[in-house]
Nucleic acid binder design. Structure first.
Lengths: 207, 207
DNA sequence: ATGGGTATCCCATAAAAGGGGGATATTGGC
DNA sequence: GCCAATATCCCCCTTTTATGGGATACCCAT
């Protein structure tokens, strides 16, 4: 059963090229292609796509807004952003809106088909530069104290769970050990980080 | 100029297979392969790799710790996690520690070489399921700032000091009020953020 | 004058911290 | 191979801190 693909792209030549590309691929079927996303929810209901290719810079309505509302109404539909923009703002807003992938338009045709299959299979295809941006958005601990390196892996694990807001009990349950063991780890953590409370330790952990 | 690759993997057959794979590829040169990461920084200085392949479950010292200290000392070196673990905890801790990619060990050999080249070229190769986890971590991060806006300025102030690791006493002293007042503020904070402990509140505060 | 923000106090229990003690296993260095 | 160091695990006790539930009062603005 081919993957049902719906396309939103306002540039006519590009839209037709994409349509042809998708329709020619054995693995995909084109179920629709539009130049704006004003009625994206209706059209999605009508065409029942598995994957939506969405441009960002569409006339009338932002593609990101469309993703947001599509994702709410059709959580099973995977949305792949396909755009020329690679600025952090748009990338992160799209991902927060529920996009499952983010490709730049420079992506070669064959990789586009691969990406459609990948996102349909539960992956999250991203152009390399986008992936790097996404990874770098994680809190980087570059300037932190070397104290944290002194922690054993078990101690780091304990501290991680504490930082999530877990109590001693929960951490013990999570690790499958006794609460006294967790306490021992925490004592060592306090010694190594030179602190006297969970909050202080977490504060250093997230410095 | 081939990419200089350094490998950390405790499983001997796998380490040798990886070594052979990397060394046989025209694009890469193997500069070292070790079964533990105890002296990863020394070895990295010695071998001057471009890319480090790092297992997570290494004897003696957690691979994530090694990444953290490698990334601080050699920011130009790209670290690629290569592991069997795909639980959120390890993935996010590895990425926060500065890993530039995260591959599961089920990755086919050819894709591994691709990934090494990709990470060297500024990309962030991830196994599809990992990429999906990473992307799905976004909405939760960004979408929950509304609660924080409900706090009064005094409550925000209290939460700020708590986040620095201060105890009730210290916060009270800092604000020049009684402990019971601080407690009242904290009770309100808990109600508004829907949490039941300082650490949870701070966790939301720093979301 | 009603309601929100700030401030203070009381009572109770729960959780965390600080101080001991000990057991086992792994490992790094000799 | 052996020893010392470390990590991991468990238990005791006491004190401190934190949480949850009340109540009261003042100021200030709508």
């Amino acid at each position: 059963m081919p993957i049902r693909v719906l396309i939103y792209e306002d540039n006519v030549p590009l839209r037709e090229a994409l349509s042809a590309l998708v329709d020619d691929a054995d693995e995909c079927t084109l179920v629709g292609a539009y130049g704006d996303c004003l009625r994206a929810n209706d059209q999605t209901y009508q065409h029942q796509p598995d994957v939506v290719l969405m441009d960002i810079d569409l006339p009338g309505r932002d593609g990101i807004q469309a993703v947001s509302s599509l994702h709410r109404e059709f959580p099973a539909v995977e949305v792949l952003m396909l755009t020329v923009f690679d600025d952090d703002d748009r990338v992160f807003r799209a991902l927060c809106a529920g996009a499952s992938g983010y490709l730049l338009k420079q992506t070669p045709p064959t990789q586009l088909i691969d990406a459609i299959q990948s996102v349909y299979a539960g992956g999250a295809p991203m152009s390399p530069s986008i992936a790097r941006k996404v990874i770098q958005s994680f809190p980087s601990k570059v300037g932190q104290s070397a104290d944290l390196d002194q922690l054993t892996s078990r101690e780091s694990q304990v501290l991680y769970y504490l930082a999530q807001g877990m109590s001693y009990k929960l951490v013990a349950a999570e690790l499958g050990v006794g609460i006294e063991t967790v306490r021992t780890h925490i004592k060592r953590i306090y010694e190594k980080l030179h602190v006297h409370s969970v909050v202080e330790a977490v504060s250093k952990y997230r410095s």
